[in-house]
């Protein structure tokens, strides 16, 4: 069962932009695409822990600012020749608000 927690207004994150949500065990990056889909991923590239929230967002992917790895926002998988995966968390938009699944975020702290 999902327990959605209201994080912020969708407009607090620019289109093709990202913001951070602090949790007990590090930061989760919340991304908003050009078409207003939202995704939540660990804010660390599988390559050298680059801050994905600072990357350029195109389609449903983000390019890590440190070494240009391209990460799928939906699966967290590195695209192209690179191999690796970032943890993803359920996120959705309802009535202009960004919601995250609080239980997933808590499981993350246990893992």
């Amino acid at each position: 069962m999902s327990a959605w927690i209201d994080i912020a207004a969708l407009d607090a994150v620019p289109q093709r932009g990202a913001r951070l949500v602090k949790t007990v065990h590090g930061c989760v990056a919340v991304f908003r695409t050009a078409t207003d889909a939202v995704y939540a991923l660990d804010n660390a590239c599988p390559h050298k822990k680059g801050p994905l929230a600072d990357g350029i967002i195109h389609g449903a992917s983000v390019t890590c600012p440190l070494h240009n790895w391209v990460i799928s926002l939906e699966t967290g998988l590195a695209q192209g020749a690179d191999a690796g995966q970032v943890a993803t968390y359920p996120a959705r938009v309802a009535e202009g608000r960004i919601l995250l699944d609080v239980e997933f975020l808590q499981q993350r702290s246990v893992a």
């Binding site: 912020a8 949500v21 007990v24």
Partner: peptide, 15 residues
């Protein structure tokens, strides 16, 4: 300055 700050701080709530 808002874009530089975290969107939310769940660490505080958990504490």
């Amino acid at each position: 300055a808002a874009p530089y700050m975290p969107l939310a701080n769940l660490a505080l709530e958990a504490a």
